[in-house]
């Protein structure tokens, strides 16, 4: 059961793939569709595994995606997020 999900403003996306690459549960992939500027925005390919950790949101240079937790799930302890070196 998904703890959260992502919201995407597809028209802001420039297709850099940061969100896809650094998503801890790997629930994102670039969509085959184009946005108006010809970029492939991300899409959620495995919604059940999304934790809503918002790491995609932090990485996104274009403010095009962010993750959020569903209210009920938010009450649970948050998993550790952030990329370690």
């Amino acid at each position: 059961m998904a703890k959260g999900t992502v919201a995407i403003k597809t028209e802001r996306c420039k297709g850099c793939s940061f969100c896809v690459e650094f998503c801890p549960p790997k629930v994102l992939a670039l969509s085959p569709v184009y946005n108006a500027k010809g970029y492939h925005p991300p899409q959620l390919i495995d919604p059940d595994k999304c934790t809503g950790c918002d790491l995609c949101g932090m990485y996104c240079p274009d403010f095009a995606i962010h993750g959020f937790r569903f209210p009920k799930a938010a009450a649970e302890p948050a998993p550790t997020v952030g990329a370690a070196a």
Binding site: K9, E11, K14, K37, P61, D62, F63
Partner: peptide, 25 residues
């Protein structure tokens, strides 16, 4: 709503930075 929206001049989006540029991050 993306929580960062409130800090942004959304009327100026999208910004000028290139795809893959890190400034936005």
């Amino acid at each position: 709503e993306n929580p960062v929206e409130q800090f942004l001049r959304t009327d100026r989006m999208p910004h000028i930075w290139c795809p893959g540029c890190g400034i936005g991050t």
